[in-house]
Design a protein around this nucleic acid. Structure first.
Lengths: 194, 194
DNA sequence: GACATATTAGAGCGATTGCTCCAATACTGA
DNA sequence: TCAGTATTGGAGCAATCGCTCTAATATGTC
């Protein structure tokens, strides 16, 4: 059944994450990617149809990793989800740098393969559903103002402060959790937000 | 005294801001920049020593514009400075997209001309001084925890929520001011923070 | 008008990049 | 052992980009 593979798909994806986290999307040239794991450029294209497709997989993998944690916590408790952002960043520093410092549009320029588009839509829908359900529980009903309030407390505030640390290659200190808790309580309804 | 100039430095800087705000730093090729105002590429290099130098001027100009507003308000009142972020973004949507969606490191790769480095250091120092003075007034003394608290309320929180709007090419609604006020009051000392 | 000069104008060079293509290679199954 | 094939290995192509360089052009001064 042919020669045994010397490299795995994940080897390339991991190397890509390392390179982007360190040098930004511009640093991810195919030569740099292959060089990082001493693979030939041909092996990159043996696995991924294009640089864009590889970057799309990198991006989706990161979103999935983050979102799995986030949604799971969100189903129990809003504040837990807020703090889960912090924990995820600590556990995945390289992925966090990519997620927080760049946008999907800045990584990939072209169109995605249909299969990846489907995965992306699925992720978006899952997040939307989880957040909507949470807002209903926390506020009683979903309005634009409530939505903004929730997304601010769950998402914008934690990622906003974490971004500053990641940009300087530092890890957010423990006290950040206090700030986020205070913000959450100030902005979300006092009632149990389960 | 030579031919009358058909283009001004600011024409190129403004065009660059438009292009980056719309398509990201990667869209700013010299050809695209010159084409935007129907200038020849030679005229770009007649005014700016390199693409990096031009981007450095773009970045510094944006920082200066933002920081002037921010520091002026900060000298009176912390909450006013927080809300000044919102106002500045509304008045400078293209500049705001660049400031919030990208980092200096992602625009320019090489070293800056010494004169621009000096301007950058000056801006950094001005901001640091203003923030430090504010922290002293608000908390009594400067500690790492107080610093984080202040920067979160003044900077991370507003820019965090605004970033989401800018990324989608939307303008932050008025209700965002309420969220920021509540966050500010929750996180900063109750005493007059003048 | 003649000259000096600041600026426009754009062809094109060297370097880099994404990607292709063809061989070489090592593994499987018979 | 030999055919079949999945994968490595890497030279090189076409496109793009930042930038240079020379010529053309318009303006001020005498």
């Amino acid at each position: 059944m042919g020669r045994k593979a010397h490299f795995q798909n994940s080897d390339f994806l991991d190397a890509a994450i390392r390179i982007i986290a360190e040098g930004g999307p511009g640093a991810l040239t195919i030569a740099a990617l292959a060089g990082q794991i001493h693979a030939p450029v041909g092996s990159v294209y043996h696995r991924f149809p294009s640089r864009d497709a590889l970057l799309a997989e990198v991006w989706l993998g990161i979103i999935e990793s983050f979102q799995d944690d986030f949604i799971k916590k969100l189903e129990e408790d809003g504040l837990a989800a807020t703090l889960a952002c912090l924990q995820w960043v600590r556990q995945h520093p390289a992925e966090a740098r990519i997620l927080l410092l760049y946008r999907m549009q800045d990584l990939t320029t072209g169109r995605w393969p249909p299969e990846l588009q489907k995965r992306a839509r699925r992720l978006k829908k899952d997040l939307h559903d989880a957040v909507t359900a949470f807002i209903k529980r926390a506020f009683g009903k979903v309005t634009p103002e409530n939505t903004d309030r929730a997304i601010f407390a769950l998402y914008d505030a934690p990622l906003g402060i974490i971004r500053r640390y990641l940009s300087d290659n530092r890890v957010p200190p423990a006290a950040v959790a206090d700030l986020l808790r205070e913000t959450y309580n100030a902005v979300m309804p006092k009632a149990k937000s389960r």
